[in-house]
Design a protein around this nucleic acid. Structure first.
Lengths: 200, 200, 200, 200
DNA sequence: GATGAATGAGGATTCATTCAT
DNA sequence: CATGAATGAATCCTCATTCAT
């Protein structure tokens, strides 16, 4: 039936009009809520309401609630995995731990203190997130630890490295009671973590 | 088809030989589940099923789910409060912290490693348990900390005492990855906590 | 540990006081709705509303929506399975089919015409109900058919027995357009099913 | 970051070289899915995914989910209506039924066995498709039946014609258990349907 | 001490559908 | 022709809780 002949002159305005970035907004809102009230205690409704969108909109961007966490963690997880891989190939000098600790701190800092809190306060959730155990956050951290302190080391030394890493994160939790701003808190936490290291 | 008419002659033996202790069993089961999967992720049904009793039976012994946690924490909380009160009246010598730490460790050990895990992993829950803020666990710990390190101290020192206390508890969490038994883990955790103290 | 000594005099009263029989009422209501609108198109809310109870009450009596269907079918399925087992051990005389047909008709009649409709109109649902394929309704019917007509028989004969059985059920479906009462319809359906049998 | 400036000169060739026939593809996919899992259990998403297009694309071609079914049935329905009209004007000889049956079989065969299954397994859906009762499939079949067997006939005879027609369709359902190809099945079903007719 | 039956609120998730582009 | 983003209403189901017995 004779197609239409269409001529379109589409001239887009040079000013970046509006990047809808909803996905990112969801991740931010979810992280904040999860960190504050915990994963289970945060409902999809709450997340949606805080953003002024519908629950269904969340499901357009993420397959499930767990999927939001996965996305939230994906970046961090990848970086931890890389760090672990790198550490495993280094000679296990006393200095290696220091470097690892510094990078761990940087990784955790990427998403702000909320992420720190989240990791500590939602361990159970994170663990059960993926059945593919060895790709999960937990496994990555495990790898990282054994790279620094072999499984054959003393209990105390194994604990040292783990507490050192977690101290960085704990700072986000216990810090709420201390009247100080985030960066001061982190600086202090890093110093203390160093003290915990095996031979410092 | 005609109900059965039941006449029961229940003749209980007078000697109360067996204390049913259901209440205690509930607390134990709940602690284990809360520590493993988190407070929110654990339902009253699960607790009841694990004990082979009815949900309603739980409500015979406890007013609510939160009440179970409260009971679980009541003893610990009282002891922490006492510890805080005692510490507040001591001169703030460097040795005080050591003593407090030792008693904290004892208190936490009372219910086993599960309780440690619980405290760290369910902070949000514990906080919102009582609207009477100052009776809550959280507040007690706060008091304890300010007794040892005044709010006017350096950020680092405030962090020191808090991380030291939490290290004891974290041991229960990160310890799952270390192949060691509970007592060894605790001994090591105590030593490391000492290292973190302000002037050790 | 001092047990209770229990003496029970069970004297059944002849007057049936009040049987709450909610479970049965649910099954009846569900059957009616499923038959009328189909399984998927019937929501738990509708079933509950029709009975004047809550959705949650349904879940007290049944584990899931599918579970209602399972319970609905359980009795029928068992009887079909028995019939199949019995038929498999009979000599495959021309008369056997007649007897089977009669009993099939009786079985289906047990829950009224609605059940007939249900079986035909919700085949897909019934099939996917249990992953344990060979215990399912479908398999039972299959067994019954092969008991009467071996898998090696002509296509026509295999079809005969199946259509004969299904004709009984179809009567419930197409019967809605015929102005007649249930029993007349069934009598006629039985006669026609007989005509379809292999060598009648 | 400055959008791209797009200028499109879309000049469609008048000769319709490639028929995209998406509409037909949708109908085929939908029929297959509806027949397999039922209308309600099949979502627009599934249909779209199977075709590798978007849900929204479905709505470009059809106004609604029900509309897909309507389109699917439109052709068949028209032919059944024609058949009914023709039959109503014929003298009601014993031979008429045979001719009707043959044409019914042809009509149903047009879209393959899936269509047969669909009709039987989704009766409720089809009925409620149009509020204009007398245009619906169901009504057409009713007209066809009364053309062959007056509403005043015996219950058995009314049932005969209906079961005969439905036998053709049932063959598609029960046939899945018989190891035979479609055409053999249909031939057999036609023969059996003939046997059911009033005076055969 | 404990149960069986029930409730109301809310959980995560999916659906058919719309609309600007 | 078709999509990406979104909606509102509905889905099944679970939860903490209650209460008569």
């Amino acid at each position: 039936m004779g197609k239409q002949r269409v001529i379109v002159f589409a001239v887009s305005t040079p000013t970046a009009v509006e990047p809808p970035r909803t996905r990112e907004r969801i991740l931010d809102a979810a992280l904040a809520l999860f960190a504050e009230k915990g994963y289970d205690a945060t409902s999809m409704r709450e997340i949606a309401e805080q953003l002024g969108i519908t629950k269904a909109a969340l499901y357009y961007h993420f397959d499930s609630k767990a999927d939001i966490v996965r996305a939230m963690l994906a970046d961090t997880e990848r970086r931890v995995a890389e760090l672990a891989a790198w550490a495993q190939q280094q000679p296990c000098t006393p200095d290696l731990s220091r470097q690892v600790l510094a990078r761990w701190s940087d990784i955790m800092q990427a998403r702000g203190l909320a992420a720190f809190r989240f990791v500590v306060a939602n361990r159970a959730v994170i663990d059960e997130l993926g059945p593919e155990r060895h790709d999960g956050m937990h496994a990555c951290v495990g790898d990282l630890c054994t790279a620094l302190v072999p499984a054959s080391a003393s209990v105390e030394d194994q604990l040292r490295i783990r507490l050192a890493l977690m101290s960085i994160n704990m700072a986000g939790l216990v810090g709420t009671d201390i009247d100080a701003d985030e960066s001061d808190l982190l600086t202090a936490a890093r110093r203390l973590a160093l003290e915990l290291l095996p031979d410092a």
